Deep mutational scan, measured.
Amino acid sequence: YKIYPYDSLIVTNSISVKLPKDVDRTRLERHLSPEEFQEVFGMSIEEFDRLALWKRNDLKKKALLF
């Protein structure tokens, strides 16, 4: 996945969300650098992957990456 800054990946309720063209809309968190991922989620990507799907989705919603 290509890395993008968190600010360019957050999704708000506005209709005209302009995400970069090559971003996987269903896995926005994968486009964060490991350092920024840790900062946003408070855990590593590996720890995040071990969580239940509902928990990952809940965290993504709170981080505006859903």
Rank of each mutant, 00 (worst) to 15 (best):
Tyr1Lys: 09
Tyr1Asp: 07
Tyr1Ile: 14
Tyr1Met: 10
Tyr1Leu: 14
Tyr1Ala: 10
Tyr1Glu: 07
Tyr1Ser: 08
Tyr1Arg: 10
Lys2Asp: 08
Lys2Gly: 07
Lys2Gln: 12
Lys2Pro: 15
Lys2Phe: 07
Lys2Tyr: 07
Ile3Trp: 06
Ile3Cys: 06
Ile3Ser: 06
Ile3Asp: 03
Ile3Lys: 07
Tyr4Ile: 06
Tyr4Pro: 02
Tyr4Asp: 01
Tyr4Val: 04
Tyr4Ser: 01
Tyr4Ala: 02
Pro5Ala: 08
Pro5Phe: 03
Pro5Lys: 05
Tyr6Gly: 01
Tyr6Ile: 03
Tyr6Asn: 01
Tyr6Arg: 03
Tyr6Phe: 03
Asp7Gly: 12
Asp7Met: 15
Asp7Leu: 15
Asp7Arg: 14
Asp7Ser: 15
Asp7Glu: 15
Ser8Arg: 14
Ser8Thr: 13
Ser8Trp: 14
Leu9Ser: 00
Leu9Asn: 00
Ile10Asn: 04
Ile10Tyr: 04
Ile10Arg: 12
Ile10Asp: 02
Ile10Lys: 15
Ile10Phe: 04
Val11Asp: 06
Val11Gly: 08
Thr12Asn: 10
Thr12Arg: 11
Thr12Trp: 15
Asn13Asp: 14
Asn13Ala: 12
Asn13Gly: 13
Asn13Phe: 05
Asn13Val: 08
Asn13Lys: 09
Asn13Thr: 10
Asn13Leu: 08
Ser14Glu: 15
Ser14Asp: 15
Ser14Leu: 12
Ser14Pro: 14
Ile15Met: 15
Ile15Gly: 15
Ile15Leu: 14
Ile15Phe: 09
Ser16Ile: 10
Ser16Trp: 08
Ser16Met: 12
Ser16Tyr: 10
Ser16Phe: 13
Ser16Ala: 12
Ser16Glu: 13
Val17Pro: 13
Val17Phe: 04
Val17Glu: 15
Val17Met: 08
Lys18Thr: 15
Lys18Phe: 08
Lys18Ser: 15
Leu19Cys: 06
Leu19Thr: 07
Leu19Pro: 07
Leu19Gly: 06
Pro20Leu: 06
Pro20His: 05
Pro20Trp: 04
Pro20Ser: 04
Pro20Ala: 05
Pro20Glu: 05
Lys21Gly: 13
Lys21Pro: 15
Lys21Asn: 14
Lys21Glu: 15
Lys21Ser: 14
Asp22Ile: 04
Asp22Lys: 03
Asp22Phe: 05
Asp22Gln: 05
Val23Gly: 02
Val23Leu: 06
Val23Gln: 02
Val23Ala: 06
Val23Thr: 05
Val23Cys: 04
Val23Ser: 03
Val23Pro: 02
Asp24Met: 06
Asp24His: 06
Asp24Glu: 06
Asp24Thr: 04
Asp24Val: 07
Asp24Trp: 05
Arg25Gln: 12
Arg25Pro: 15
Arg25Val: 15
Arg25Thr: 10
Arg25Phe: 08
Arg25His: 11
Thr26Leu: 12
Thr26Asp: 13
Thr26Val: 07
Thr26His: 14
Thr26Lys: 10
Arg27Gly: 04
Arg27Phe: 08
Arg27His: 15
Arg27Tyr: 07
Arg27Cys: 08
Arg27Thr: 06
Leu28Gly: 01
Glu29His: 02
Glu29Pro: 01
Glu29Gln: 02
Glu29Ala: 01
Glu29Thr: 01
Glu29Leu: 02
Arg30Ile: 04
Arg30Val: 05
Arg30Leu: 07
Arg30Asn: 04
Arg30Tyr: 05
His31Trp: 03
His31Phe: 04
His31Arg: 02
His31Asp: 01
His31Pro: 01
Leu32Arg: 00
Leu32Cys: 01
Leu32Trp: 01
Leu32Pro: 00
Leu32Tyr: 00
Leu32Lys: 00
Ser33Met: 04
Ser33Trp: 03
Ser33Asp: 07
Ser33Pro: 03
Ser33Leu: 04
Pro34Glu: 12
Pro34Met: 12
Pro34Arg: 13
Glu35Met: 11
Glu36Asn: 06
Glu36Gly: 05
Glu36Arg: 03
Glu36Phe: 03
Glu36Trp: 03
Glu36Ser: 08
Glu36Tyr: 02
Phe37Ser: 00
Phe37Ile: 02
Phe37His: 03
Phe37Cys: 03
Phe37Gln: 02
Gln38Arg: 13
Gln38Lys: 12
Gln38Ile: 11
Gln38Tyr: 14
Glu39Leu: 14
Glu39Gly: 11
Glu39His: 13
Glu39Lys: 15
Glu39Thr: 14
Val40Met: 04
Val40Ile: 10
Val40Gln: 06
Phe41Cys: 01
Phe41Met: 06
Phe41Gly: 00
Phe41Trp: 01
Phe41Lys: 00
Phe41Asn: 00
Phe41Leu: 05
Gly42Trp: 06
Gly42Phe: 09
Gly42Glu: 10
Gly42Asp: 10
Gly42Arg: 13
Met43Gln: 05
Met43Gly: 01
Met43Thr: 04
Met43Asn: 01
Met43Ala: 02
Met43Arg: 05
Met43Asp: 00
Ser44Trp: 06
Ser44Arg: 13
Ser44Met: 11
Ser44Glu: 10
Ser44Tyr: 08
Ile45Asp: 04
Ile45Leu: 13
Ile45Gly: 06
Glu46Thr: 12
Glu46Val: 13
Glu46Arg: 10
Glu47Asn: 10
Glu47Trp: 07
Glu47Ile: 10
Glu47Lys: 09
Glu47Cys: 09
Glu47His: 09
Glu47Gly: 06
Glu47Tyr: 09
Phe48Glu: 00
Phe48Cys: 01
Phe48Tyr: 06
Phe48Asp: 00
Phe48Gln: 00
Asp49Glu: 11
Asp49Ile: 04
Asp49Ser: 08
Asp49Phe: 06
Asp49Leu: 07
Arg50Cys: 11
Arg50Glu: 13
Arg50Ile: 11
Arg50Tyr: 08
Leu51Trp: 02
Leu51Val: 04
Leu51Thr: 04
Leu51Lys: 05
Leu51Met: 09
Leu51Gln: 07
Leu51Arg: 03
Ala52Leu: 08
Ala52Gln: 10
Ala52Asp: 13
Leu53Thr: 09
Leu53Trp: 10
Leu53Tyr: 09
Leu53His: 10
Trp54Gly: 09
Trp54Cys: 11
Trp54Lys: 10
Trp54His: 11
Trp54Ser: 11
Lys55Arg: 13
Lys55Ser: 08
Lys55Met: 13
Lys55Asp: 09
Lys55Gly: 04
Lys55Pro: 03
Lys55Phe: 09
Arg56Phe: 01
Arg56Cys: 03
Arg56Asp: 00
Arg56His: 02
Arg56Pro: 01
Arg56Asn: 01
Arg56Leu: 02
Asn57Arg: 09
Asn57Gln: 10
Asp58Thr: 11
Asp58Tyr: 14
Asp58Ile: 13
Asp58Met: 14
Leu59Lys: 05
Leu59Asp: 01
Leu59Met: 12
Leu59Val: 03
Lys60His: 01
Lys60Gly: 01
Lys60Ser: 02
Lys60Tyr: 02
Lys61His: 07
Lys61Ala: 08
Lys61Pro: 00
Lys61Phe: 08
Lys62Arg: 12
Lys62Trp: 06
Ala63His: 09
Ala63Val: 10
Ala63Lys: 09
Ala63Pro: 00
Ala63Asp: 01
Ala63Asn: 07
Leu64Lys: 14
Leu64Pro: 01
Leu64Asn: 12
Leu65Val: 03
Leu65Gln: 01
Leu65Ala: 01
Leu65Phe: 03
Phe66Trp: 14
Phe66Ala: 07
Phe66Met: 09
Phe66His: 08
